[in-house]
Structure formats: structure tokens, C-alpha cells
Design a protein around this nucleic acid. Structure first.
Length: 897
DNA sequence: TGACACACGTAC
DNA sequence: GACGTACGTGTGTCAA
């Protein structure tokens, strides 16, 4: 027997919109309603597996009900913009899933559903109406039930049959219309009778059966209800016409003259390709994963596996001769790209793809070519002037470097390009980027999703890896072209061409060079810190009266707030906080918190740095090689990991000892050059604030100047405390500091903090204008940009939730400043690197720490390299104020400051 | 045992 | 809820 599922599409869009507060793509397209709707639709299809299905929408805002009562649905506001924009997307989803859509101008979805359901029932079909609207209860019978996937998801039972109707409403399904005529419907602006609720309405209908019977025999009303019958009778009689009107409004029409029959809605399987493309575009990554994998569309002309020097020479010659762009894909095992096992190398162009196995390790794996043959065989390709594209060029360059080859020719980095286009997205895997930009479905990485202990890529057969890697390499030329168009369209090409792309070889060299560490010093500190911690731990246990795990915030909270009964200063989700601020306050009342602070400090330094760093020293050269992430941060800053060398401690005396373990080799010095107040200078530039501009042009102490302006005293009378406050203010302004934040930080009353901020903005009106401009700009354009055109989308800038919106506004204030600083430092790195090469210096860039560059410089080059670095850094950008650089050098990184 | 969230802390 | 951007460690919980 056929089964028909009818889905109340309009109802669900609104419900999904309100149930899911905020969801948007990284480009800022709102998707909350379409996401909820899609989930609902998929769930409904999964649950019922109907033979026939249709999705029904309202079309137009008027129906026959408006002629009956002009007030009908008059309370319904226009859909907000961020919902209306999703209506077409919902139809796209339906199309992709091959679900027929019905909408008939002048008819409401409810009546269409009622009519179709009636016809299907008459033919003996079973019907399910997927809805959350109780109005449909009037349709329920033995073969028609209602299903609400959202109610079921929240555990409230999603199915409604005759028994459920009677239980919930107190009347039988065929009485629902009568019942609702009395009760009205708030949502549709159908008024009920004042003072008559669900219980009374149900009692009346149980007694009379219909409203007409009730209106014919009002005398029986007092007997039908438990109390207040006299008054109720008068109200019903007075509202007789209202009840009759309501009946015409709430009764669903089952007799519409529709030009289609249920038979037309036979179910078809989803259009996989379309669904995949759409869900990817909408960034529904979970739903993409749930779709069965499609057949790969990338026809990389079965890659040729290279089995000898002659084959390699022929392949390379063919590609060099063709002269077109070549895609390069190193196949790497686990670990950072600089050292990960090099399993093989795929390269493709001119319609051909090749795979060169280099490190497959399994029984019967073919022996790789001799290293010299690999190197010399690849050399003509690597040294050719043709473009060589890669998805993460830095990793490809590391791979080539390990084969003894240096690449300096042209070529795009498709990962970097994709990251510039979507800087807040974390993952930019090639298969995803290729699907999105070129609609090409690459084969899955054969090692992906493997369980731990299962062989990685190096344990897989050459042919399997070749098929995958060859297809990936072959996709790169087209993809690079598409991404270049995207960058052009988003006005990001100059940033990519002049800053990001040229930075790649600089970072490759920095990672390869690494920084020398004094392992002995680290290991000595480890033992020393360990002893101090043990000593502190004993004293902490004594103060508590019993041993406990000092590192456990939960156990510590138990000791502090339950056993010692100290006051709770700050609460977190899971209980009272024990962070530094809290312990500082508690230290005024008890000795234990101070000891814990000391213990924490040592534990942090030992665990994060002193113990971890020596393990990451490369035994080959005694140096630590971090990995820089060129577009890992949303603002454009670099980040660093494995290890993170951008958060090595500097502030306390003890922590400076860690910097002392970063050293220069004999005959060389570490040189540290950092931009002075770069972010504040950028704020001066953006804001055009005369006071701020003047402070930098006159090379004044900017914090003292701010203090003088804010507190209304001459600069020479600024007290250290006033300067301290001004410093916090100067740092905080660019982050969107609030009075609350300032009061917390300075331990002042909020009113006083507010006064300081008010005075600051009076003196620095330009800064206030910058803040307003930054927020307004982000709201108008949906993105923030840096001076060099780097863009970051701001999807939540228009959010109705004030917390989300405020956070987005602070981001909009900060991003142009932090991002412009990042741009300038990147430009400086390229300039310094190029100038060192130009002057044939042996000095090398080692690290970048946001506003600081660290170099290793042979002693004899110190003076000229210091001048070079200062010149190139200060000249990296021309702002309305000069850029200043402070340089220091010494045997260790600590002395460089 | 591994994956994950949380709290915390380091840098700029 | 309250100041932006990162990464790493240890604890604790949950599921396999």
C-alpha cells in the first residue's frame, strides 16, 4: 500500500529559524533556518521511508481566510531579512534531495495538505503529515498521523494519532475544529472567548458535539461545565457570530481544486552531486559526511607510477616540454612537514599524472630510486621556470629541500589562497577546496579515518597511494586558476602576490634553520624547578592539613572554599574559580594561596617549556625547529607550534632564564628587533587623532602623554600610577575595552574606570571616531579590512544577541589594527630576507614573534646587519607616523631585549 | 586507552 | 557579559 508523507515546509522554516539562534557560513550567509529545515527533512525521510512525498509551502500572504476576517494573521510580521534570504536556499535543498515542492498562489499550505491527504486517504493510502502545528489534529484518523521530528528530537514524542489527540486536547479528532472555534488561535490572530481555556472548551464540545448544537441549546451550558456556567452561557451567546467565523477560519479546506494528484509524488533518490555541492557551499560539513560517498569525478588519467630513472627522466621531460603549470603533491607521513616521512611525490600537468614512490614500507614494496637519481631526475622540473603549484607550498618546499633540491620559481599555494579567502575557517583540506571551487570530487585519502595502529600512508600499496595522490596533483592547476579568480574578485590579489606568496620561502628557510638551545641549561632548570615544586607542595599540604593534588583546580577549590572557608571571588560553569586573580585576592587572608601561585608558576614553566623544549631539539643540529602557520590566525598573524616559540616567557625574572637557554653558536649573536608600539601607531594612523599623531611624531613617551592628557596634568607631573593606568588604557582601547574591564584590570570601582574612559575619549576624539567607523564599516560591508586589504568576515556583527554582537564589534575594532601590524611585519620579513641575500650576509632570520624579529648574526656582521634590519623594518610601510624599531643583541635571547 | 571539554597560563 | 589573537598542559569525564 502506498504511503504519502506531506511536509509543512513553511511551518518548519519558521520553527528552525527560531530554534537555532545563529548559524552562518564563513562568508556570513545566514543558514540557521535552512540547516534546521534540512535536518528535519532528512529525519522525516529516514523515519518514514514513504513511497510518495511532497513538501508544501505557502505562496503569497493572502488566502480566502482574509476575506472572512481581515484580521486573520494580521499580527504576523514580515519575515526578517536573515530569514527571507534563506527561502530560496530551502528550495535548493528540496531540489537537491529530489523532494517535490508544492505551492499554489492564494492557497495556504495547510489547505493543500488537507486536500492531498484527503485524496490519498480516499484511495486507501496511509498518510503522515510532518508538522509541529496542532491545527492539523483535525485531519488525524486511523490511517493519518502527525509527526514532529523536532518534538521527537527533544524527547517529547513526535507521533500524534487519534489517541494522542484525545489525550492532549480532550476531544476526538473530528471535534478538533469545533473545539478550536471556541478556543481561537493566538498565532493566527483568531480570537477566542475571553476567560475560556482549553479545559472549558473541551468540556463544552464533549457535551454538545458541535458548536452549532451548543449555540442552539445554550441553556445546557451550565450543566456542561463544572462551575461558572451562568456567566459562560452569556459569553457564548454574545460571541455566537465570532464562534461561527472562527469555525470557517480554523477548518482546513479539503476540497481545493488542485492540478495534481498524490500519485505524482513518487519518491526519488537524492541528487547526490547536487546535495554534496549545496551542503558544501552552505558548510553543512556533518551533512556532507552523512551523504554516501560519490564516485570520484577527478579523472587523473590513471597516474603512471615511476619505477626507474629512465621513467623519471621521461616524465620530467614531458612536463617541462609542455611548459604549462604542474601540480606537485608530496605524500607525507605523520609529523610536521619539515621532518615527516616522505612517502612519495606526485606531479601532474598537461593531462598526465605521475607518482614517484620514495618511502613505502611494507613487505614487497618496490625499492625506491637511489637518492641521487631522485634528485638529478627531478632537478630539471624543479629548476624549470614553469609554475609549480602545491596545496601548502611550504610543505612541498620542505620535501624538495630534503631531496636536495631548492625551489625558487613561480607557482601558487592553493591552501594559502583558500585561507586568505576564508580566514576564519580552520580546515582547508584539498578535497574540500577542490570540491568547492572546481566541483571536482577527489578520491579520499586512503589513510584517512584509519584506526590508530593501522598502517599510515607509508604502509599502503604504491598503486593505491598513486591513484589518490596523482588525482590530487592533477587537480591543482585548475584549482589555482579558480582561486586566483576568487582572490581577484575579493580584491585580495595584491595581498597574496606581494605579501603572502613571497613570504613562503622566507618561512621555509626560518623553519629549516631553527634556533640553538642550551639543553644542559634546560635540564638543569628542570631539576631545580622540580625540587622547588616539591618543597612548595609539602608546605601547601601542611597548610591544608592533608595532602592533595595541587594541580587539580577542583581539589584546590575544595581546600580553599570548603575546608578553609575562604570567600569565593569568581564563579565558573563548574564551580568557584582558582585562577591567578582569585588567588592574589585570597593571599591577603591566608598563606596557602601565595604558595599555590608560586607552585603554579614553576609548574607552568617546567611543564610547558623546560621539560618540553629539550625533547624537540633536533639531534642532527641541536636546534629547535618550530612550524609557522602563515594563515592560521584570523587577523593574519603568524602562529607557531610544535613547539610554539611565540609564547616563550619574558615578564618575570625566573622566566627570563628560559630565554637565556636560547643561544647563539660560537662566533655569532642573537639579534632581536622589535617594533615600538606598532599597534598604537596604526591606531594613530587610522584615527587621524591629532594628539596621538603628535605624540609619535615628537617621539614622546606615549603612555606618559596619554596620562597627561587623560588626567589633565603636565607630562612632567604624571605619577607612576597615572602612567600605569594610561598604559592599560592604551593597550585596551584597541581591543574594545569596557569600563568593567578596566575596573577589573586596575582594581578600581567601575564608576571611576568609566570616568577615566570618558576623559580619554574627550581628549582623543579621533580614537572614538575610529571605533565608531570600524564597527559601522564592518556592519555595512560584513567584513573588516586591514590597510593592505586583508579581509575578515564578521558574520555576527548584526546578531540580535547582544553578547555575540558586542564580541563581534570588539573584533571589528581590533582586526584592522592587529591585522595591519601583521601585514607590516610580514612585509618586513620579506624585505629583511631579501636584503640579507642581496648583501650576501650569513645572518639568518630565525623567529617572528608578532612585532619582533629574531636573527642569528655572525659577530663580524653585527653592525651592518643591525642597520639593515632597522632600515628594512622601519621602511616596511609608510604610515602617518614613523615606525620605530628597537634592536638589541647578545649571546642569548634574554640579552637581546 | 583515547578523545574531548575545561581551566589555566604564556606570548604579543 | 564585560579586552583582541594565538598554542600547550594538566585534570576530569565519557565512551569504546
Amino acid at each position: 500500500m502506498p504511503t504519502l508523507t506531506l511536509i509543512d515546509g513553511s511551518g518548519f522554516i519558521f520553527r528552525a529559524y527560531h530554534a537555532i539562534p545563529h548559524l552562518s557560513t564563513t562568508k556570513g550567509i545566514p543558514t540557521n533556518a535552512v540547516y534546521g529545515f534540512t535536518n528535519m527533512l532528512l529525519k522525516a525521510l529516514r523515519e518514514h521511508a514513504p513511497t510518495h512525498v511532497a513538501l508544501v509551502f505557502d505562496a503569497g500572504r493572502r488566502s480566502f481566510r482574509h476575506d472572512i476576517d481581515p484580521e486573520y494573521k494580521a499580527n504576523r510580521p514580515e519575515a526578517p531579512d536573515d530569514l527571507a534570504s534563506q527561502f530560496p536556499l530551502v528550495r535548493d535543498v528540496a531540489r537537491a534531495l529530489n523532494v517535490p515542492v508544492i505551492e499554489e498562489p492564494g492557497f495556504e499550505a495547510d489547505d493543500i495538505i488537507a486536500t492531498l491527504a484527503g485524496r490519498a486517504r480516499a484511495a486507501g493510502w496511509e498518510v503522515v503529515v510532518v508538522t509541529g502545528d496542532k491545527d492539523f489534529a483535525q485531519l488525524v484518523d486511523g490511517g493519518l498521523s502527525l509527526y514532529d521530528p523536532m518534538a521527537e528530537a527533544s524527547g517529547r514524542g513526535g507521533w500524534t494519532g487519534p489517541a494522542e489527540v484525545e489525550k492532549k486536547m480532550g476531544v476526538r479528532p473530528e471535534q478538533v475544529v469545533e473545539y478550536q472555534s471556541i478556543l481561537g488561535d493566538k498565532i493566527d490572530n483568531v480570537p477566542g472567548i475571553a476567560g475560556v481555556g482549553e479545559v472549558t472548551a473541551a468540556a463544552l464540545i464533549r457535551h454538545f458535539g458541535t458548536t452549532e448544537a451548543m449555540l442552539a441549546r445554550p441553556g445546557e451550558i451550565p450543566a456542561a461545565v463544572s462551575r461558572g456556567g451562568e456567566k459562560l452561557r452569556d459569553k457564548v451567546v454574545a460571541n455566537a457570530e465570532r464562534i461561527r467565523t472562527n469555525r470557517r477560519l480554523v477548518a482546513l479546506r479539503r476540497d481545493l481544486d488542485l492540478p495534481f494528484a498524490p500519485e505524482a509524488f513518487g519518491r526519488r533518490p537524492p541528487d547526490q552531486e547536487r546535495a554534496r555541492a549545496l551542503f558544501s557551499e552552505l558548510e553543512f560539513s556533518r551533512l556532507v559526511k552523512e551523504l554516501p560517498p560519490p564516485p570520484p569525478t577527478a579523472r587523473a588519467e590513471t597516474p603512471e607510477t615511476i619505477d626507474g630513472r629512465a621513467a623519471l627522466d621521461a616524465a620530467v621531460a614531458a612536463l617541462v616540454q609542455a611548459g604549462g603549470p604542474v601540480g606537485l603533491l608530496p605524500v607525507l607521513g605523520e609529523g610536521p612537514p619539515r621532518t615527516a616521512p616522505l612517502v612519495g611525490l606526485a606531479f601532474a600537468g598537461a593531462g598526465r599524472a605521475f607518482y614517484l614512490p620514495l618511502g613505502h614500507r611494507y613487505l614487497g614494496a618496490p625499492a625506491p630510486l637511489a637518492p641521487a637519481d631522485v634528485r638529478e631526475g627531478l632537478r630539471p622540473l624543479v629548476e624549470a621556470a614553469l609554475p609549480l603549484h602545491a596545496h601548502e607550498l611550504k610543505a612541498a618546499a620542505h620535501a624538495l629541500a630534503r631531496l636536495g633540491l631548492a625551489r625558487s620559481g613561480p607557482g601558487e599555494d592553493t591552501e594559502l589562497m583558500s585561507r586568505l579567502l576564508l580566514p576564519t575557517r580552520r580546515e582547508h583540506a584539498l578535497v574540500d577546496v577542490a570540491r568547492e571551487r572546481t566541483s571536482c570530487e577527489l578520491p579520499r585519502n586512503p589513510a584517512d579515518g584509519a584506526k590508530r595502529g593501522a598502517p599510515g600512508l607509508e604502509g599502503l600499496e604504491v598503486e593505491r597511494v598513486a591513484a589518490w595522490a596523482g588525482a590530487c596533483a592533477a587537480s591543482l592547476p585548475d584549482l589555482a586558476a579558480k582561486l586566483a579568480e576568487g582572490l581577484e574578485a575579493e580584491r585580495l590579489s595584491p595581498l597574496y602576490r606581494e605579501v603572502e606568496r613571497p613570504l613562503v620561502p622566507v618561512l621555509v628557510e626560518m623553519e629549516r634553520t631553527g634556533i640553538l638551545v642550551d639543553r644542559g641549561a634546560m635540564e638543569g632548570m628542570s631539576a631545580e624547578f622540580g625540587r622547588s615544586m616539591q618543597d612548595l607542595e609539602a608546605r601547601i599540604h601542611a597548610a591544608a592539613g592533608h595532602p592533595f593534588n595541587v594541580a587539580s583546580t577542583r581539589e584546590l577549590a575544595q581546600v580553599l572554599f570548603v575546608e578553609l572557608e575562604l570567600p569565593v571571588v569568581k564563579r565558573l560553569k563548574t564551580g568557584p574559580s582558582t585562577d591567578q586573580d582569585v588567588l592574589e585576592k585570597l593571599a591577603e587572608q591566608h598563606a596557602l594561596p601565595r604558595l599555590v601561585l608560586e607552585h603554579r608558576s614553576l609548574s607552568k614553566l617546567k611543564g610547558t617549556y623546560v621539560d618540553a623544549l629539550p625533547q624537540l631539539v633536533d639531534p642532527a643540529d641541536g636546534r629547535i625547529h618550530t612550524t609557522f602557520h602563515q594563515a592560521g590566525a584570523a587577523t593574519g598573524r603568524l602562529s607557531s607550534s610544535d613547539p610554539n616559540l611565540q609564547n616563550i616567557p619574558v615578564r618575570t625574572e625566573l622566566s627570563r632564564r628560559i630565554r637565556q637557554a636560547f643561544v647563539a653558536p660560537a662566533g655569532a649573536r642573537l639579534l632581536s628587533a622589535d617594533y615600538s608600539q606598532i599597534e598604537l601607531r596604526i591606531l594613530a594612523h587610522y584615527s587621524d587623532d591629532p594628539g596621538l599623531l603628535q605624540a609619535f611624531r615628537d617621539r614622546e613617551d606615549v603612555h606618559t602623554r596619554t596620562a597627561a592628557e587623560t588626567f589633565g596634568v603636565p607630562p612632567e607631573q604624571v605619577t607612576p600610577d597615572q602612567r600605569r593606568i594610561a598604559k592599560v588604557l592604551n593597550f585596551g582601547i584597541a581591543y574594545g575595552l569596557s569600563a568593567f574591564g578596566l575596573s577589573q584590570r586596575l582594581d578600581l570601582p567601575p564608576s571611576e574606570a568609566q570616568g577615566i574612559i570618558d576623559r580619554y575619549f574627550t581628549r582623543y576624539a579621533g580614537v572614538r571616531r575610529y571605533i565608531e567607523w570600524a564597527v559601522e564599516e564592518a556592519r555595512a560591508k560584513g567584513e573588516s579590512r586591514t590597510l593592505f586589504g586583508r579581509a575578515r568576515t564578521m558574520p555576527e556583527i548584526g546578531a540580535r544577541n547582544p553578547a555575540l554582537r558586542n564580541a563581534a564589534e570588539r573584533t571589528a575594532i581590533n582586526t584592522p589594527i592587529q591585522g595591519t601590524a601583521a601585514d607590516i611585519v610580514k612585509i618586513a620579513m620579506i624585505r629583511v630576507h631579501d636584503a640579507l641575500a642581496q648583501e650576501r650576509r650569513a645572518a639568518r632570520l630565525l623567529l617572528q614573534v608578532h612585532d619582533e624579529l629574531v636573527l642569528e648574526v655572525p659577530e663580524r656582521e653585527l653592525a651592518p646587519v643591525e642597520a639593515l634590519v632597522r632600515r628594512e623594518m622601519e621602511g616596511a610601510a609608510r604610515l602617518k607616523v614613523p615606525l620605530e624599531v628597537q634592536v638589541g643583541h647578545g649571546q642569548t635571547w634574554a640579552e637581546g631585549h
